[in-house]
Design a protein around this nucleic acid. Structure first.
Lengths: 141, 141
DNA sequence: ATTGATGCAAATCGTTTGCATTTCA
DNA sequence: TGAAATGCAAACGATTTGCATCAAT
């Protein structure tokens, strides 16, 4: 992903294109479901004086503009995801590891299922599946 | 749910049965997906001098012993659930409301689906579905 | 009696906020 | 230029921790 690609994404949303925003967008895409702290650490290597407050503010703006997503975790720390295509998540039950899980067959299955299912007084907008389990390979951190 | 029922649950896990633990277990069952703060507020009406630290510690113990569950939310505040039977959650996309969702047909569907599906190097232990959408009735708070 | 639970207050940590300064459109 | 973004540091709020005291087994 080139820097220009990120510039375009920002511009398309009518957001001001700043080096901080580009760097943050890039960081979220480069890292695997980073916390805000990870993003800050990553960016500070090349851009030492970015403020933590700025990072939090920008992350919020990016989420509001559908450029990144917030990921729920069992713990209380928020994590971010640069992939906007609909997907689910694999959670390691014994570590902090999270991986993306793409499965169009599952999406179709769920779509069909909930189309014919009427839940009391609830209108479904989105369905997310969390698979909790164990990764066979050792966790990498 | 009687107090004795909660006493039994604690004793069965080999936990010491204390009035605080009973009150917290009761609170989580009486309230709808309460935050720790809600639990504290609820208990303090009848038991004014329970310490916040104690409530957090007890909630953690109860989760570890599978007497209650932690519920993920979009926000960073943890919430608790006294229902241990496998179930999913309905999340209101525009409020903090969370409701339990029971659906054995869905559970079966998912079970069958993932039994024949092999995910790279991942062993599934549990599958949780989050339905995000809107409740037809006005939210009650 | 002994082990573990509680209360209290201070500490921690992720996140938010206010405001003066700087930057992008 | 002017609105919006940044940096900084202080404030916040949920949760945790240490430790002396107290209660359940």
């Amino acid at each position: 992903m080139s820097v220009n690609h990120f510039k375009d994404k920002l511009a398309l949303k009518g957001l001001k294109v700043t080096p901080q925003r580009i760097a943050i967008l890039e960081a979220v895409h480069d890292l695997n479901h980073p916390t805000a702290e990870k993003v800050i650490g990553y960016i500070r290597e090349k851009y030492p004086n970015i403020a933590t407050g700025t990072v939090y503010k920008v992350l919020e703006v990016l989420v509001e503009n559908d450029l990144i997503k917030k990921v729920k975790t069992d713990k209380d720390i928020m994590r971010y995801d640069g992939i906007m295509k609909s997907h689910h998540h694999l959670y390691s039950s014994d570590s902090k590891r999270i991986e993306d899980y793409f499965d169009d067959e599952l999406n179709l299955l769920l779509k069909n299922y909930f189309e014919k299912k009427d839940i009391n007084g609830f209108t479904i907008e989105d369905v997310k599946v969390q698979l909790i389990g164990k990764f066979k390979e050792k966790d990498l951190f």
